[in-house]
């Protein structure tokens, strides 16, 4: 087999959905829309945890804001009989993600934990992934961002400060997952316990609408929550197989 054949073969195999026979962990999140009040505490927590910049008025008007999780607002029904709906929208960590297949440099790929990765130093900024993402949750750094003193003191050292020209998105707080695994190894355990790792948004949610955990463990809080009859996934017809499950808001019939 020539080198080129080996390369293309490996590439094809890698591109196939379900490249992993089994995930090591399978991180997943459920968002209970019945509990979500749209307070945006998760947005703020994410901003603080992941070194997200405040882009300023001008960039915001150009649609270049950075929010790894955002609250989408929908109106249901016709005035005056309208209902307000919130959906927190973050990277869905799809198991067959469209963004992964399109990256020319494999800066985004699926790892063994069922996470859709984003490797900043590998990204060359083609923005193809953002075009392919049906959830519009990838954000491009159009500028180098500044943190005026003393705000640079609150930057999280466990997260890169991204430069101009790279794509970024929700990582399910990979730094926290890594730390939890580190603690597990210190204790001589192999697995991370349920509830031991929480992304910043989950930790902050005052209504406990967000639940995070390992989907492979049938007894984990997230697995039980996913079996709820209200569970659905956004744009499921696209077969992206998202890891974020929403629990539908149910109104009392009055």
């Amino acid at each position: 087999m020539s080198l080129l054949d080996r390369f293309t073969d490996g590439w094809r195999k890698y591109r196939k959905p379900g490249y992993y026979e089994e995930f090591d962990y399978h991180w997943a999140m459920t968002i209970d829309l019945d509990k979500c009040t749209g307070c945006e505490a998760c947005v703020t927590a994410c901003q603080a945890e992941n070194n997200l910049p405040i882009v300023g008025e001008k960039a915001f008007a150009e649609g270049r804001e950075m929010k790894w999780i955002r609250i989408e607002r929908y109106w249901e029904g016709e005035y005056p009989d309208v209902k307000l709906r919130f959906i927190p929208m973050l990277c869905q960590q799809c198991d067959s993600a469209p963004c992964e297949t399109v990256c020319p440099v494999s800066a985004t790929y699926h790892n063994q934990d069922g996470l859709n990765t984003q490797i900043y130093n590998r990204c060359i900024g083609t923005r193809s992934c953002a075009v392919y993402c049906p959830y519009e949750v990838r954000y491009f750094n159009w500028n180098d961002h500044q943190w005026d003193a003393p705000l640079e003191q609150q930057l999280n050292p466990d997260v890169t400060v991204r430069e101009k020209g790279v794509m970024e998105k929700c990582t399910f707080c990979i730094q926290r997952i890594r730390q939890a695994k580190d603690h597990a190894k210190d204790d001589g355990r192999r697995r991370v316990r349920d509830g031991e790792v929480q992304p910043a948004c989950v930790q902050t949610c005052p209504a406990n609408a967000l639940v995070f955990g390992d989907r492979k463990d049938p007894n984990s809080q997230v697995s039980r929550s996913m079996n709820d009859p209200r569970a659905y996934r956004v744009l499921e017809e696209l077969n992206t197989d998202p890891s974020v499950v929403y629990l539908k808001k149910v109104d009392a019939k009055g």
């Binding site: 790892n111 063994q112 990765t117 490797i119 590998r122 990979i174």
Partner: peptide
């Protein structure tokens, strides 16, 4: 274990 996964070392 998973020593060559990008997210083991890149953040």
């Amino acid at each position: 274990e998973h020593g060559t996964d990008c997210w083991t070392c890149h953040k």
